[in-house]
Simulated scan of single mutants.
Amino acid sequence: MKEIAAYLLAVLGGNPAPSAQDLNHILASVKGKDLTELIAVGREKFATIPSTGAAGAGGGDPAAASPAAVEANKEEKVEEDDDEDMCFSLFD
């Protein structure tokens, strides 16, 4: 089972055809380490990754959003408002 997990990690990491040596390297990197410590280190690494989500989409810094993402978000909101202004219903 751990070999399958290592294979999947390698593929997710960008290696489309991991070798046995690649899998052994992944498994050796975590051998003998405490799971909770590994998770804590992983969380710290994720905390340093900048968020690229649109403002208001959950946890992103609105000031860090790209102008294109902000504009796309505005356009999306306008389209939603247009749909709500229609004065008919399928059941009228």
Rank of each mutant, 00 (worst) to 15 (best):
E3Y: 12
A6D: 05
Y7R: 14
L8W: 05
V11G: 03
V11Y: 02
N15Q: 11
N15G: 00
P16M: 03
A17W: 02
S19Q: 09
Q21R: 10
Q21K: 12
D22W: 01
D22L: 01
L23E: 05
N24S: 13
L27Q: 11
A28V: 00
A28P: 01
G32R: 06
G32Y: 05
K33P: 00
I39R: 11
R43E: 15
E44C: 00
K45D: 08
F46L: 15
F46S: 04
A47I: 01
T48Q: 14
I49G: 01
P50Q: 09
S51C: 13
S51F: 01
T52V: 11
T52C: 02
A54N: 08
G56H: 05
G59N: 08
G60F: 08
G60Q: 13
G60C: 08
D61M: 03
D61F: 03
P62N: 07
P62V: 04
A63H: 07
A63C: 00
A69I: 10
V70G: 00
E71C: 00
E71W: 05
E76S: 12
E76M: 13
V78R: 15
V78N: 08
V78L: 14
D81Q: 13
D81M: 13
D81K: 11
D85V: 07
M86S: 07
S89P: 00
L90E: 14
